[in-house]
Design a protein around this nucleic acid. Structure first.
Lengths: 123, 123
DNA sequence: TCAATAGTTCAATAAACATTGAACATAGGA
DNA sequence: TCCTATGTTCAATGTTTATTGAACTATTGA
């Protein structure tokens, strides 16, 4: 349970898998929250997403996000830290992640996404 | 069987549905082919996609693309003409469709998408 | 009127998906 | 050493999805 899980290489990132990952509201919210957090810290840990779903359900969604190449997981003690693989995404599909994030931001209310203030609260 | 099927209004277009639609390789190929065709004609009919799947399967995918707001269907005789709802997509999610299409173009081989030449052959 | 063409509808099927809770593993602090 | 916090794994469940073929509808042209 302690080792770093496998991640696809940059070249292994596939468009349909990425789009499928982003099409789920919970996963989109995870990605959005990570993106919002970036100015503060590029990482968040699992517990920071507890509002979005139950623990084991989050583990499932994290695995999908990792498997498609959107997120990286780093293990540290009992925590797993997540960050967006921005550079790899941008290299593979220029402009895609930004376009999705901007679209999500436009519909933040409709998608029930956390606002900046919610995200940056103390941990 | 002859009337124009229902389409969502611009405002009813939802990001998760759009992304989900585009995450299927067959639907992505349909959208891509429509986009490639645009300089020649903004419309294609069902039969132009026969290479991608069986007829009833295509009907299924067309319905999904229509329901999410990506495509418009126009009925004319025994034909149904499809076109991309570019303006509506651009209004709702600026830059998104272009980013996806560019990403798809980059991976055209991997995604087995028709090249420009294939698409623009005589009909 | 008849046949061919274009596409839809429906039912059946198998696979994938999201969700849940219980049991488990691991690291760190009292 | 034991307790707690963090997160994973596994099995079970119900839902949605993609795909197929057969039957059907509607329009066009001979």
């Amino acid at each position: 349970m302690s080792r770093t899980p496998p991640h696809p290489t940059r070249d292994q990132i596939e468009l349909p898998l990425v789009l499928d990952c982003l099409s789920d509201p919970i996963r989109l919210a995870i990605v959005y929250q990570l993106a919002q957090q970036e100015p503060v810290s590029s990482e968040l840990c699992c517990g920071d997403f507890n509002g979005l779903a139950g623990k084991s359900n989050l583990t499932y969604h994290f695995a999908k996000l990792r498997d498609c190449g959107l997120m990286q997981t780093r293990v540290s003690g009992t925590n797993r830290f997540m960050r967006l693989r921005r550079d790899d995404l941008e290299a593979r599909f220029p402009g895609l992640l930004d376009a999705v994030l901007k679209s999500a931001a436009k519909d933040a209310d409709r998608l029930q996404l956390a606002s900046g203030c919610d995200v940056v609260e103390a941990g």
